[in-house]
Design a protein around this nucleic acid. Structure first.
Lengths: 144, 144
DNA sequence: TATTAAGGTAACTTTTATTGTTACATGAGG
DNA sequence: CCTCATGTAACAATAAAAGTTACCTTAATA
């Protein structure tokens, strides 16, 4: 199943942006994540709508952070990308009158809801500056 | 993104099987989940490989449970269906030398690993007989 | 023994969402 | 006014599950 890599990609870009410290073009970003500028604009536009970045046209144009990375969490970015389910597990809805189908789906949904709550809580605890170079060793040196 | 509904569907079938108490044909199962017999055989074959069901050809053939539902957990079935990731979030692997990409992926992977461990633990705690008619009210009456 | 009812499986199509691409319009500097 | 940038529509490529068709094998039974 094809994965949604927008979160991973856009976080990568945002951390680079702060390090660069000037407007960054979609073309430059596209090289960072090995794709083309249109794909970049499509995703970055969602972050602009949520006011995490701004864009400007023309010479010396491009994208800029609208606030420091320390005030943005992974949850903020995840939510800005839109409400896609976090899970590959789908629930059937073919026989809504069947009590067995209901019981199965309720059990699966219980587990998914609990896991989703955990993930959103963890995402909310991680700010983007924690992904910057000064804290990288914290992750790289972890066992695993 | 298209969801994998095999777990939901096959659990539905397994609970019905015990209630029926005889060999059930792929055709009958297909009606239960609104699909066709080939799709059923494809998924059920994975459960047969893991010894949760058996199949027989010819007249009065079909599929039968190889053990009571009380000795099968949701985790058992999930594992029998093969190792597909539980999450729709994908990690990029385009610039493996980039420390920022590493830090981003490590942070996301941490969260996903924790959530996956929680889900597998919960799946392991739920046996299929808990989805039978005698316990259905436990799920249907839950607030949610 | 011939027929029928079942699973086994290969090969192909359909579906659906992300991702990739092309093309063109718009706006801001220089 | 020309160039550099974003904005966006329209379409193609990709990938995995699901759906479908076709044909084979095996077992019961008439």
């Amino acid at each position: 199943m094809r994965k949604d890599s927008r979160l991973s990609r856009v976080l990568h870009i945002l951390v680079h942006m702060e390090a660069i410290g000037r407007a960054v073009t979609s073309e430059e970003m596209a090289e960072m994540i090995s794709t083309n500028p249109v794909v970049v604009r499509r995703t970055m536009a969602l972050l602009r709508t949520a006011h995490y970045v701004s864009s400007s046209k023309g010479h010396h144009g491009g994208w800029q952070l609208a606030m420091p990375l320390a005030s943005i969490t992974l949850l903020d970015i995840h939510l800005a990308l839109g409400e896609s389910s976090l899970f590959t597990i789908g629930l059937t809805d073919e026989h809504s009158h069947c009590v067995i189908e209901h019981a199965v789906n309720a059990a699966l949904k219980d587990v998914m809801n609990e896991a989703e709550a955990l993930m959103l809580q963890r995402f909310g605890q991680i700010t983007l500056d924690q992904l910057g170079s000064d804290r990288i060793s914290r992750y790289l040196n972890k066992e695993q």
